[in-house]
Amino acid sequence: MKDTVSLNDKQLMAKEKVNNPSFMKTIWREIKNDKIALGSLILLTFLLLAAYLSPLFIDQADITRVYMGNIYKAPSADNWLGSDDGGRDVFGQLMLGARNSFTIGICVTLIAGLFGLTVGLIAGFYGGIVDNIIMRIIDFLMVLPSLMFIIVFITIVPQYTVFNFILIMSAFAWFGKARLIRSRGLAERELDYINASKTLGTPSWKIMFFEMFPNLSSLVIVNMTLTLAGNIGLETGLTFLGFGLPTGTPSLGTLISFARNPDIVENKWWVWLPAALLILVMMLCINYVGQAVKRASDARQRLA
């Protein structure tokens, strides 16, 4: 008797697995069925592989070394995309910059995501006065012209490093996430499984991170993919203005910032144009994949 029951349970679970594929599987199915999303994903993977694997083929020290006899050379077989004001190879810097920009984008997204998640879960789980106070603060923070504040912080921070830059950017990137997670959390806290867990005496933090969070994870994944592109755009934009990565750590924005000089915009397009186009392509790809991920999270919008 007991055996049959457990067998049935097993069968049920197996059936459940087939009927309820994991979120990752749903995402993959959604991407597979959208030709443009699939193309974007392949192109993005290719670009990132090229950027992250380039140190195997290109000498890193060589890229940042100045060659005075080689300034502003047009593209040739030696320098595929020409060279910049220090005679440095633009193609090598493009790969290095893409790697730095993407890595920083990921870091900012993760840190801001973690912070937004924590604040959002706390507001959503406790509700009431705690929620009220947190939300008033977030309302205020969201109104601020954040770009100006980021620039001011970057200028006044002593000992400016890449890590500080990531922290400052993250500090202004979590408000929307917290708000999103909080609104779903508020609905979630009314559900029976949370109440049951509370009655059993599970500590609040355990309920938040191990019981509530898994149910919100698809929301978090969707939001993170969509904001990743925005964060990369903001980082390159700040670097373009001269308030981003410190000199010595080139980003795609560093190459584009050459375009602040009209002579270079017009006559030395190879320095800045490839970086600008590369950012554009990366943004479009990430967003397209992000849209597919978003559709996967909402059964009504799915194409597949």
């Binding site: 755009g233 203005l241 584009i256 600008a276 950012i279 479009l284 967003n287």
Partner: peptide, 21 residues
């Protein structure tokens, strides 16, 4: 979709490059 994904500074630069230069 394009207008959402394109960073403002990249787009402005491309506009400047194309139409002014």
């Amino acid at each position: 979709y394009f207008s959402f994904a394109t960073p403002l500074f990249v787009f402005s630069l491309l506009m400047l490059f194309l139409f002014s230069f």
